[in-house]
């Protein structure tokens, strides 16, 4: 069975005829070529496939594509668009929060969701928010430091905007 999926992916509205049982991760990776979304496990264990659906983190491997009907999906490719890296992405780079990089897209999107919900999270909140995202390589400190740095730079940006 096929159905029409209307969805906004990384800011672009699209309509695609897709099989009813297609997983969101396969729609994104195989259908749209958005391979930044990673599959690290056989379902629901690792968080590597985290994407944002209406600003909330969602496991694309455990979501049917049709479940995002009419919603707004963001993947790692959409975070900075064609522009420069976002402060969060830069912080992961600068603080050595990415080693092999396989967990990184999911980790960044989980952190992005946290920062949208709570721009100034404490260390424990950061750890909690990222606890569903496994990383085998980077020590936690580098990842937490990256999120803290990004929160800090967002704060400065808002302060500057306020001063203008």
């Amino acid at each position: 069975m096929k159905s029409i999926l209307s969805v906004t992916v990384n800011g672009r509205r699209r309509e695609d005829a897709i099989p009813d049982n297609l997983l969101l991760i396969d729609y994104l990776r195989d259908g749209l070529g958005l391979t930044g979304t990673k599959q690290g496990c056989d379902g629901g264990e690792c968080g590597a496939c985290t994407v944002l659906v209406d600003d909330e983190p969602r496991l694309a491997c455990s979501t049917l594509a049709l479940q995002v009907q009419g919603r707004r999906v963001e993947t790692i490719e959409g975070l900075a668009g064609d522009g420069d890296l976002t402060p969060l992405q830069r912080a992961f780079q600068d603080k050595l929060g990415t080693e092999c990089g396989f967990c990184t897209p999911g980790m960044i999107l989980a952190a992005e969701a946290l920062l949208r919900r709570n721009p100034h999270p404490g260390r424990e909140e950061i750890k909690q928010a990222l606890s569903g995202n496994l990383c085998r390589c980077a020590g936690h400190a580098q990842i937490v430091a990256a999120v803290e740095t990004a929160a800090e730079s967002r704060k400065n940006e808002t302060a500057m905007e306020g001063a203008r």
Partner: peptide, 14 residues
């Protein structure tokens, strides 16, 4: 590392 944080890094399955 820029490719890794922007999702452009292509691993074998990508």
């Amino acid at each position: 590392s820029a490719a890794k944080v922007s999702g452009k890094a292509r691993y074998a399955a990508d």
